[in-house]
Amino acid sequence: YHCKTPDCKGWCFFEDDVNEFTCPVCFHVNCLLCKAIHEQMNC
């Protein structure tokens, strides 16, 4: 999964039971359910 922050090169592999990941490059939290960044909110 590629981080949705513009111009960020961060990415990860994820498993089905994970709903979000913190990008190791820009540190934004990406929602894997809706494929967006909406920190401090539920999907």
Rank of each mutant, 00 (worst) to 15 (best):
Y1D: 13
Y1N: 05
Y1A: 09
Y1L: 04
Y1H: 07
H2W: 07
H2V: 02
C3K: 01
C3I: 03
C3N: 02
C3S: 01
C3Q: 00
C3D: 00
K4T: 09
K4F: 13
T5V: 11
T5W: 12
T5A: 10
T5L: 13
T5C: 11
T5Y: 09
P6F: 04
P6R: 09
P6D: 05
P6W: 02
P6E: 08
P6Q: 11
P6H: 04
P6C: 02
D7N: 10
D7P: 03
D7L: 08
D7V: 03
D7K: 11
D7Q: 08
C8F: 03
C8W: 00
C8K: 00
C8M: 01
C8D: 01
K9N: 08
K9L: 11
K9F: 05
K9Y: 04
K9P: 14
G10Q: 04
G10T: 04
G10L: 00
G10H: 05
W11T: 15
W11R: 13
W11A: 12
W11H: 14
W11V: 15
W11M: 15
C12Q: 07
C12G: 06
C12S: 15
C12E: 01
F13A: 15
F14S: 09
E15K: 09
E15W: 05
D16W: 05
D16A: 13
D16Q: 14
D16C: 08
D16P: 15
D17C: 08
D17I: 07
D17S: 12
D17H: 12
D17Y: 13
D17Q: 15
V18H: 06
V18R: 14
V18K: 13
N19S: 13
N19Q: 14
N19C: 10
N19R: 13
N19E: 14
N19H: 07
E20P: 01
E20R: 07
E20G: 04
E20K: 08
E20A: 06
F21C: 08
F21E: 04
F21H: 02
F21L: 04
F21N: 06
T22R: 10
T22D: 05
T22N: 06
T22Q: 10
C23T: 02
C23G: 00
P24E: 06
P24N: 07
P24F: 00
V25R: 07
V25Y: 08
V25A: 10
V25K: 10
V25D: 09
V25E: 10
C26A: 02
C26V: 00
C26K: 01
C26T: 00
C26H: 03
C26I: 01
C26M: 00
C26E: 01
F27S: 10
F27A: 11
F27P: 03
F27H: 15
F27E: 08
F27N: 14
H28T: 12
H28D: 02
H28N: 08
H28Y: 04
H28E: 13
V29L: 08
V29P: 03
V29G: 03
V29M: 05
V29T: 10
V29C: 07
V29K: 10
N30P: 01
N30C: 01
N30H: 04
C31F: 02
C31E: 03
C31G: 02
L32C: 07
L32K: 13
L32W: 04
L32Q: 09
L32T: 12
L32F: 05
L32R: 13
L33C: 08
L33S: 11
L33F: 06
L33M: 13
C34A: 02
C34W: 00
K35I: 01
K35E: 12
K35G: 14
K35Q: 12
K35M: 12
A36S: 13
A36D: 12
A36Q: 13
A36V: 06
I37F: 05
I37K: 08
I37M: 08
I37T: 14
I37Q: 11
I37V: 13
H38I: 01
H38G: 03
H38P: 03
H38D: 04
H38F: 03
E39M: 09
Q40P: 13
Q40A: 11
Q40F: 03
Q40M: 05
Q40W: 03
Q40H: 12
M41V: 12
M41L: 11
N42P: 15
N42E: 14
N42C: 12
N42Q: 15
N42M: 10
C43E: 04
